[in-house]
Amino acid sequence: MAIIEVDAVRKTYAGRPVVDGVSFSVDEGEIFGILGPNGAGKTTTVECVEGLRIPDAGTVKVAGLDPVADHDRVTQLLGAQLQESELQAKLTVREALELYSAFYPAPADWRPLAARLGLEEKLTTRFAKLSGGQKQRLFIALALIGDPKVVVLDELTTGLDPRARRDTWKLIEEIRDGGVTVLLVTHFMEEAQRLCDRIAVIDRGKVVALDTPAGLIRRATGSTVISFVPSRALTGPDLTRLTALPGVASVTPPDSEGTLTLHGTDDSVTPFVALLAELGVTARRLRITGTSLDEAFLDLTEQDA
């Protein structure tokens, strides 16, 4: 069942459409990703969901309610972590948790929440003295403090180091396992691939693809990448035969270390091995990998260019 429905939403700033007919729906219990390059309209889209912006056209429903007209009820159902927002510099973690608890009619107990987010040691620390990761964890706690059914996390891991980022990913999975639907805005492909059940790729205000991470990767051309260093220099006719292998989309000439790269499909692998045997070439440092969501994403957003 859909808990968030976004239908043909448009938002224009100074005559420039920032969100241009975006539609998607988020099912209860899933982690739904909104992925796109900077300035694609991701944040504006979720701000319409949070009721912080009024769409010029189209409708948004959260659990059947209008986020602007029913702001009170929607904010009780939906917790938000906003991009680039802060708290009062001298407010301590404990005071922030207590203050935000007071905003909701039936808040979650902030103590276990603080423990779960590793903020117990920091309760008496002022907001300005927290590290980037600690601030983000506090904002996750504040997003969850109203015991919401949905949380919106906007660029949560931007600016975190790789370890803190991975810890945050684990947290997001735990939130979903606790029965909360997550709407995740990100520009990290790895993050979307790891966490999301489904992803809407937004580019220049439009949804250019909406699928599971695996589905998005399959759509991309050249989804299997074969790289190797041939034991002898390959001749022109050899390269032509490589290019002609089933499913091969492109062959990149050797780089400075002599590594050749083929973009193909699963079907390219066996004929490739057979061809090497026939040519009497040994493949050193042979790697066969699936393409990353990164490349699928570039592929998807480039089609539009």
Partner: peptide, 9 residues
């Protein structure tokens, strides 16, 4: 800070 508060009841 005002914005963050707008996202609460």
């Amino acid at each position: 800070i005002l914005r963050r508060m707008s996202a609460t009841p």
